[in-house]
């Protein structure tokens, strides 16, 4: 029996965290979310109608089902801004989970590690369940854990690029060194990327563009769901070591 993912005492049956942006229309969005079987939805706080989230142009369409919302601070350029919008989200009653996302460069949208660490410290102390989006650096990821992050979310590659995991070695180090869950966030473009993340030992993945911008987002959502399962099982099953030369799979001297 496989264990479920637990974040801050909250048990999740699905290891997929899904973004709500960039879908071609609400119908496809709903169907894709449904097909993915995700339980955690993320969205930018700045884009949401916080006073009336159930009337929001995006969130209104996912009403009627239970989701753990993971609002994010995307667009924040420093810790102070991120903390401010995180508090807005919490005060609105939407969620006390927060994905800290702080970027300055409008081209790469890469996370600012120093500001991310600052915001994580403050928000964790205030009782938020903090999931910071961060670069794939094992040292900063460990520091985020020490600062009180409930899970850490290293990026595979820049947001929306679909470049996959650029540094698998780093991701596996992060998985090895952290005690809190590791969710690979950003840059995953297909089922193969997702399987790779899970095989490296990630506890889950967060993606958005890979599904929302696929030619058939609903089919891709199905595919990602299976990829997570396949990668997780492969990781737990334990892969064979790589060798340079062949070994016959039907041994010559079989033990009769």
């Amino acid at each position: 029996m496989q264990k479920n993912l637990v974040i801050a005492g909250h048990e999740l049956k699905s290891r997929l965290f899904l973004g709500t942006g960039r879908y071609p229309n609400p119908y496809i969005q709903n169907k894709a979310i449904e097909a993915s079987e995700t339980e955690v939805l993320t969205f930018a706080i700045r884009r949401v109608n916080l006073q009336d989230p159930h009337e929001d142009s995006i969130l209104q369409h996912v009403g009627g089902r239970y989701f753990q919302f993971l609002p994010n601070t995307s667009g924040a350029k420093n810790a102070e801004e991120a903390i401010r919008i995180a508090r807005l989200a919490k005060a609105s009653g939407i969620s006390d989970w927060i994905k800290v996302e702080i970027s300055k460069n409008e081209k790469t949208l890469l996370p600012d590690p120093i500001e991310t660490l600052k915001a994580t410290e403050v928000l964790a102390k205030e009782g938020f369940v903090v999931l910071p989006y961060i670069s794939d650096d094992p040292v900063i990821c460990k520091k985020l854990e020490e600062a009180g992050a409930a899970a850490v979310m290293p990026g595979g590659s820049p947001i929306g690029t679909g470049l996959g995991i650029l540094n698998p070695y780093n991701i596996s180090l992060i998985v090895e060194e952290l005690n809190v869950p590791v969710i690979v966030d950003a840059g995953l473009g297909s089922a193969a990327d997702v399987t790779q993340a899970m095989e490296l030992g990630a506890d889950g993945v967060l993606l958005n563009t890979a599904i929302a911008k696929a030619k058939d987002p609903i089919a891709m959502a199905h595919s990602i769901k299976h990829a997570i399962q396949a990668g997780r099982l492969s990781y737990l099953a334990g892969r064979i070591p790589k060798k340079k030369y062949a070994t016959a799979s039907s041994p010559i001297s079989s033990g009769i």
Binding site: I45, R46, T73
Partner: peptide, 16 residues
Amino acid sequence: GIFHEADILGLETKMS
């Protein structure tokens, strides 16, 4: 029109 300073980054990305 935007209501949050955090929206500026998005506008800058689009503009660029």
